[in-house]
Design a protein around this nucleic acid. Structure first.
Lengths: 220, 220
DNA sequence: CAACTATTCAACTGATTTCTTGATCGCATC
DNA sequence: GATGCGATCAAGAAATCAGTTGAATAGTTG
């Protein structure tokens, strides 16, 4: 019967929704948007057991949002394509615009952004030409998988230690995973507390890369 | 603790995924992309009870994907915005590109499209200038909520009856809800069986409207 | 081959989801 | 105010889901 065939087709579409219907899986997609990672690394990032993370990854794989590849002893997962990144970005935008609970949840996680100056990608490109210091405030592995050329890697747990590196009078632009990522905010607040002029990129590295701007890879 | 606040935020994002994680709800979104409808009309379209449909609509409403408004005796639901339509379109595209099961499910629902000629929106605009006949093969209510100017409403159940209207030598372009909608295909097949040259618009009316092309409203 | 590491599988618990059924509510009309 | 219609609510059954735990597997290293 036609009605049943239709149900089956729309159930297939719904698999993508199902993949994104768990907070833990959306966290995974967010991390994977920064670059490929092993199951263990992903488990650590989302604060879940390896077994549970593996099962979530398999749900994502069944919906085709991620692909995996064995690399010797470990299995490396990555997003299936740029399309998936765009879908994830759009989903966040829809959530931010339409779900009342996003605002308070974001405020509680990110804190007050009133004091945090934000710059656009274009601004950052301009300032790069003027020799601004750029901090990549993400875990080292994400920096190495790709970063803004000239940025220095300052993983979240090193921010406090490395404040002293910044000479007086130097401006810092920090960036991290995206608009809802807290790492850059924390760096900006810490720098401001030391009387440095600091600001954050309004979105994150995936948007930079997707905009076709230059990307550096490796420890650089 | 920061980790918990992060979970809460990503759980909020996941609400949008959850809204789209049921085949019945994706069907609802697909119908609502054509225009607003009452609960009862929606229930009929997706072949579910009114009570169940109402509950699905409330899930969609909680995720902010749809809004409702009382109109006298009935409650009319509509998509919350164009952003939601775009999200739905992108989700279908991701599913089509990444989920192995979409192809067979689509084939089974839509049948073999090998014989069905497809035209782009630009083609249709051109042919409209040349006086082609355009069939809007959607339920009447969707036609009335908005259609391609000059199109005639031929609801799916009337296709057979109205084949005779088309004079020999006249070309027909049929369209319906979108790329995965079967109505236009059935009309094209029926017309072809009567030796009429017929083709379908490759996508549907929502894409036409979103492209900023002219839209007519009402019984027109 | 033994020992080790990273990942997956299997089994299980408690929570959530889907759909049904029947009652209830809001609004319009008689 | 009674009646009727459209929609929602409430309660329950079956299925599915998220997370835990412990065992099994694939691949590497000694």
């Amino acid at each position: 019967m036609a009605a049943e065939a239709k149900s089956v087709l729309f159930d297939q579409f719904a698999l993508v929704g199902k993949a994104l219907s768990s907070g833990r899986r959306t966290e995974l997609v967010d991390v994977l948007a920064q670059g490929e990672r092993s199951v263990e690394a992903l488990a650590e990032q989302i604060g879940q057991s390896v077994a549970n993370t593996s099962q979530h990854l398999q749900v994502l794989a069944r919906s085709g949002l991620v692909a995996s590849q064995r690399d010797g002893n470990r299995v490396v997962y990555r997003l299936a394509g740029e399309q998936v990144e765009v879908l994830w970005e759009m989903l966040r935008a829809v959530a931010a615009d339409n779900i009342a609970g996003v605002r308070p949840a974001a405020d509680r996680y990110l804190g007050d952004r009133g004091e945090i100056e934000q710059v656009s990608r274009d601004d950052l490109v301009r300032r790069l030409g003027e020799g601004v210091v750029v901090w990549d405030v993400r875990p080292r592995a994400e920096f190495e998988a790709g970063h803004v050329p000239g940025a220095v890697s300052v993983p979240p747990e090193e921010v406090q230690r490395r404040l002293a590196e910044v000479p007086e009078g130097v401006e810092v632009v920090a960036y991290c995973r995206g608009r809802f990522c807290v790492f850059a905010d924390e760096a900006v607040r810490a720098l401001a507390a030391r009387e440095r002029r600091a600001m954050r990129l309004e979105d994150g590295f995936p948007e930079w890369r997707r905009a076709g701007l230059p990307v550096a890879v490796g420890a650089g």
